[in-house]
Design a protein around this nucleic acid. Structure first.
Lengths: 142, 142
DNA sequence: CAACAGTTTAGAATAATTATAATGTATTGT
DNA sequence: ACAATACATTATAATTATTCTAAACTGTTG
């Protein structure tokens, strides 16, 4: 089955119509080996600059959020002014390079199991994420 | 020494002039027993609504950032559209209640040491933060 | 108390994101 | 295949958080 047909299936099976725009975005996001970290702006730029396609910014937002809601993307917590997304939807952690504003996946084996000894009463744990901020120099950026 | 005199010292010793506005903000932030989590908007509301004072929003931003840079506040990474700050500047982790958008400190003893087996080459670790997202129901909010 | 540097302020500017409402397109039933 | 419908896309406006600006103000130093 072609990649494109796979994407069509994937979309249909989750109740999303396989439109041109969504398929193009699928290609950009999911047609790769390594996981991909991006902001809406990154994605939008790739589509217009590298691919020379024109997809409305609103559609990029809509699509990314639809994909996130369907579980095809994960939104990552960064102390920042914009949202980061990750094509790696498994439970994993991140390095955040403060010099370049880049997110890097952190293999789960690199971090021992984070065990939470006591949870808030009456609440269910939805996720546990470790964010490791790194930078090259000796300044105390937080 | 009165609380106010303490704040004046604290500010002076870090090269910040003890202005009316900064002292008022010190009172709100540091004159409490428990740690305090807030957004700029929260703080601004407390000042105007509860205290009936008028401090320009720009000043609130300036002051909070000055305090953060001096190490009196910590900025917390939340997957959100706004910045959260914490008066607890020690190295610690957080619960984030997705129902109420509330941040709750997580005692370090509740989480075993997070040991990172391998860091990114050439970079220095500035911080390691665990964020535990909790919610009351069975929906898979992320 | 004068001079200076640091601060506050209102409002403008910017940036990320969401809402709107008209137009366009995939799907469904016939 | 085709009309009807529901869902999507789009440009643009609106909103929200934050930063910038330049003028007025205030704490500090001599």
């Amino acid at each position: 089955m072609s990649k494109n047909a796979e994407f069509i299936d994937k979309l249909r099976s989750s109740g999303l119509r396989p439109t041109k725009q969504r398929l193009k975005i699928c290609e950009v996001l999911f047609n790769r080996d390594k996981t991909f970290h991006f902001t809406i702006n990154d994605l939008s730029k790739i589509i217009s600059d590298k691919l020379g396609e024109k997809i409305s910014l609103a559609t990029v937002y809509n699509t990314v959020h639809a994909f996130k809601n369907k579980g095809y993307l994960k939104e990552i917590s960064i102390n920042s002014d914009k949202s980061y997304f990750d094509t790696n939807i498994s439970n994993h952690h991140h390095f955040y390079d403060q010099d370049t504003n880049e997110l890097i996946d952190c293999d789960n084996e690199l971090i021992g199991n984070v065990n939470i000894k006591k949870n808030i009463t009456g609440k269910k744990i939805n996720s546990v994420e470790v964010l490791i901020k790194v930078a090259s120099d000796n300044q105390n950026q937080n």
